[in-house]
Design a protein around this nucleic acid. Structure first.
Length: 294
DNA sequence: CTCCAGGTTCCGG
DNA sequence: CCGGAACATGGA
C-alpha cells in the first residue's frame, strides 16, 4: 500500500490493492462534494493542496509531491480487511460490501466538513456540490494550479465577515443563517473545532450540536468524516429507510432512538463504515416509485 | 404542477 | 418523549 515512484506521465504513483482502495467510490459516495472529473481522474483540493488523481488498477497516480497528504486524506492506513471482518454477515450488508469494496472514509478538514454538512440539510448530493462550489468561488482563497484556478473552502473568519444576504447569493436558502451563525461562533472562539478532537464521542457530539444548523445527524457526519470516529452513525432519510425496511420489517412505531440503539449493537466497532456502505449501495441501486435516482 | 432531498428547530400534546 | 410544521431551492 505504500511505495511511491515516478510514472512516465510526470505523476507520482502510489501502489494500492484495487480491493483495498477504490478512488471512484471514495470520491463519489456522498462524503465529500467538491471533486470534479478531469480526464481519466479528478481534480480537487485536499485542504489547501491542489491535486489531480486517477486510478488504474493497482496504480494511484497523482500530482507529484502530494503523496503523504493524499495518503492521509484517503486514509490509506485504515485496516479495511479488519473492518470488513467486523461487519455483520447478513444479505443486505454483504450486498453493500460487494458493491462498495475499496471505499474509504476520508479524513476531511474539520471546518470544511462541518460547514458542508450544515448546508446539506434537505438537499440532494448534486445540490450540495453546487453550494460548495459557489461558496468556494465567492469566498474561498484562489489556488492556481497549472492552467486552472481552484478555490479552497472559505475559512470561518471569511464567512463570518459576510452577510446572510451574501450567503444566500450562493443559493443556500435558509441554511445561510445557520452557516453564518456557526462561522461566527468558531471565528470568535466560542466553539473550538480542533479542541473537539480530544473529546470522547458523546461530549464531542454535544459540543458540535451547539452550532446552529448542527443536529445529531450533521454532528455524526462530522464525527465520521472529519473526526475519525468510526462508530459515528449518521441517520438520514436513506439510512432510516434501510433500517426500517430491512432490519425492522413489519414493526410499527420504531423511533429514531431505537434505530440508534440497534445500530450501535448490531453493526459493531466500525458501524460508521457499515453505514456508508449501506447508504451508497442503496442510493445507487434502489429505485423509488420507478424513479431512477442515479 | 407535485413531490422530495445525507435536517434542524420550535411548538403543542 | 412524540409528531407536525416551517424553512429555500432545484431537479425529476
Amino acid at each position: 500500500m505504500n511505495g511511491a515512484l515516478e510514472g512516465a506521465s510526470g505523476l507520482a504513483v502510489l501502489d494500492v490493492e484495487p480491493e483495498e482502495f477504490n478512488l471512484e467510490l471514495t470520491l463519489g459516495c456522498g462524503q465529500v462534494f467538491h471533486w470534479e472529473r478531469s480526464g481519466a481522474g479528478y481534480i480537487g483540493l485536499m485542504g489547501e493542496v491542489p491535486v489531480y488523481v486517477e486510478q488504474a488498477g493497482p496504480e494511484l497516480r497523482l500530482t507529484a509531491g502530494v503523496e503523504a497528504v493524499a495518503s492521509r486524506y484517503f486514509a490509506l492506513d485504515h485496516p479495511l480487511e479488519a473492518i470488513y471482518a467486523s461487519f455483520p454477515k447478513d444479505p443486505a450488508m454483504n450486498a453493500a460490501l460487494e458493491f462498495c469494496r475499496g471505499l474509504r472514509l476520508i479524513r476531511q478538514p474539520l471546518w470544511e466538513c462541518v460547514a458542508t454538512f450544515i448546508t446539506s440539510a434537505m438537499k440532494q448530493v448534486p445540490h450540495i456540490t453546487q453550494m460548495s462550489h459557489s461558496l468556494r468561488r465567492t469566498f474561498g482563497s484562489a489556488v492556481s494550479w497549472q492552467t486552472q484556478t481552484l478555490h479552497a473552502y472559505p475559512t470561518p473568519e471569511r464567512i463570518a465577515m459576510a452577510s446572510e444576504a451574501d450567503l444566500r447569493e450562493c443559493r443556500l436558502g435558509f441554511r445561510a443563517k445557520n452557516l453564518l451563525g456557526a462561522a461566527r461562533m468558531i471565528a470568535s472562539g466560542e466553539v473550538d473545532l480542533a479542541a473537539i478532537t480530544r473529546l470522547e464521542d458523546e461530549p464531542a457530539l454535544r459540543e458540535l450540536c451547539r452550532l446552529p444548523g448542527v443536529g445529531v445527524k450533521v454532528a455524526n457526519c462530522a464525527l465520521l468524516f472529519a473526526y475519525e470516529r468510526p462508530r459515528a452513525f449518521p441517520i438520514d432519510v436513506w439510512i432510516e429507510r434501510i433500517l426500517r425496511e430491512i432490519y425492522f420489517t413489519r414493526k410499527r412505531k420504531v423511533t429514531v432512538q431505537r434505530l440508534k440503539k440497534f445500530s450501535e449493537s448490531y453493526f459493531g466497532p466500525y458501524s460508521g463504515y457499515a453505514q456508508q456502505y449501506l447508504f451508497h449501495h442503496a442510493r445507487k441501486t434502489w429505485k423509488l416509485r420507478g424513479r431512477q435516482t442515479a
